[in-house]
Design a protein around this nucleic acid. Structure first.
Lengths: 213, 213, 213, 213
DNA sequence: CATGAATGAGCGTTCATTCAT
DNA sequence: AATGAATGAACGCTCATTCAT
């Protein structure tokens, strides 16, 4: 059950990497409804090649999941080095929201999905532990909204994700304003709340179309 | 042969209303992925009739906005009767989020969409005015997060919508916990913040399916 | 559960007939592995039209089944009018084999398949009854190989079918020789057995290809 | 650079043998729809190697014929040692049908295919001679259905094959009943015909799946 | 020579949209 | 005007065959 078999040939490895890169990029940009044809085209290979490496779409997605968990765990672990629980939690939440803002598939594939592999399950457990510690430490400082649970993190991140997904094209950083709002709601900064940074989303102007979700 | 739209025949008007009603219901319940066949069936007309009235799906969505704007305006106007600016804004935000939680298409059709008709443009203006007043009054009381703009309301509502859409099936009221969090972030209650109500979303358990968005 | 709804429009009826005709022809000629694209092309319609009338391939096939059962029942009932049990059974077997020789899908869709609709189940029962009667009557005359059962008819027919399918192109009537052989085995003629009619299948000559099943 | 095929290298020969062995086994068990990937895997070589030796699937099938002819010739020669022509022919037919019942690809590869190599052509000639002798001897005893030709043997065997292929899973010996029927039709036993042995194939029961051929 | 990675047409099926009736 | 039949590109996926390594 180890990766096993013999290592892939050089060109196969290269193509696998191309596929994974293309998939990561497309899923991040456009969410889960990209087709494997799209992925194959973006990778510069035929569909068959994608299916040779990944039995189906979920498997391809699943192949990206471990790396995403790792990134989240790393964010959590880096955040724990902050001097205060407050700063640690704030840093973690902000960096996680940032990761999600850049990756449309993070919620569906990772935050809201059950881990499908042993590796993912283990990473998720590590992540959960780290988040619990971050929240507990900040809680001990009285820095967190009472009742807030580590299990609320995915919801908060997803909310920011939904804004980010909708505004990526027209104003890529717009999500930060709402991230700040949420962050301050969960774990307010030490002193007074500053005014919200950035600008609100401009309401759409009459007559211009919008279309697809 | 008159230059612009001549009034519709009586039966055409009736059909338009049937279509709009059915669309409102289906889009609210099942989101944007209902087919226009579904809408036509629910309205008791043929697909062709739907397409005769609305060039495409987006236009049909657009056809719903007037009613939705009206509902929002009504909420805003009711909210203005509250004794304080704080209560008025809180009530408005909460009721808007509630409306959105019950209507999967509210964001796309109204919050994020430009008004396409004169009627919609006008209603949107009334709504904007009401929201501005609500925010200004609360702002004057120092009850609002500094920098918060009436233009932020759609974003806040959308965030709750994204949570509500994802949890409608398994735990229909789950969005309230996050609505409370956001509401308190925008316009905190008078005294101390209470602990968050409700429970966080349970994380998915390993081994369960992933599948389609 | 009756055919119900309102009758189809004239053009839809015509297309439905075109589809059914094309399907009947193609399935008969080429067996079950024709694609619905092939059927659609042969019918001169788009694939979508086929799927509008028949939810899937099995349904299309199923739509042909009733007519096939009817044909078989009719053969059985005509055969029962023969003066003797021997002649009746011989006539029935021969005509059934003939039907099968002309229709590549008869075995899979009817003879070896379970009936899927009420109508088909009923027709199958009628057919079974008629076959039982035919065999019993011939049996009473001592005209049938001992131990032969009505349930053996599909097997016998299928065997002839397999020969017919393989020889349809090069020598369309070749199956008759083997039909005779089988028929005489099941229910020998009254007098002496005549020599086999026709010619054996010429063995393939060296060097010529054959290919697909 | 010699005009025609130069002898293969030792390892190439070994691979060819591995491929042919694997192909024989898989085609016999699972029929013609095994993929060449399956064959390659079972042989422990790459697909490319299979295609290097055999231009396509048909050619690979062709590569199996020699061994199959040898088996048939052996059956024919053993059968000739029987005391009577009747017994010889009956034994030959029965053993050939048995061979076919155990080998899904025998018909396509041998019975219906033209020999493609010199070796195959020669073996086929030997087989034809042996069959002719068997039939002639039995014919001389009056033991054979008049008109029956050695060229009819493949057809008879194929018919049994078609039954065997369809029933292998559910009732592996079911073909014997029909083999007996055919055998008695071609070359009846010495005394009275016994009742058919075994049971007829049970008709499929309503409501069970249909699906793929 | 051997390998297995790569290909892409084709499978059964869906659905937003068009157009003959 | 209203209908719903018709369309066909696109979906996720398979596999016989080719060709770079």
């Amino acid at each position: 059950m180890t990766p096993s078999a013999r290592p892939l040939r050089a060109d196969a490895l290269r193509n696998r990497a191309l596929i994974v890169d293309a998939a990561r990029r497309l899923f991040a940009e456009r969410g889960l409804d990209v087709t494997l044809h799209d992925v194959a085209d973006a990778a510069g290979v035929g569909v068959g090649t994608v299916y040779r490496r990944f039995p189906d779409k979920d498997a391809l997605l699943g192949g990206l999941v471990a790396a995403k968990y790792e990134a989240l765990v790393e964010l959590a672990e880096k955040a724990s080095t902050e001097a205060t629980g407050r700063d640690g939690l704030r840093r973690y939440l902000m960096s996680t929201m940032e990761l999600r803002a850049g990756d449309r598939s993070l919620s569906t594939a990772v935050l809201r999905a059950a881990p499908q592999t042993e590796e993912a399950t283990e990473l998720r457990a590590r992540l959960a532990a780290a988040m619990t510690a971050l929240v507990a430490r900040a809680q001990a400082e009285g820095a967190v909204r009472r009742g807030f649970s580590p299990d609320d993190v995915p919801a908060v991140t997803s909310m920011i994700g939904s804004i980010a997904d909708r505004t990526r094209e027209e104003s890529p950083g717009a999500w930060r304003r709402y991230a700040e709002l949420l962050l301050d709601a969960v774990c307010p900064p030490d002193g007074d709340l500053p005014p919200l940074s950035g600008e609100p989303l401009a309401p759409p102007t009459p007559g211009v179309c919008r279309s697809r979700p």
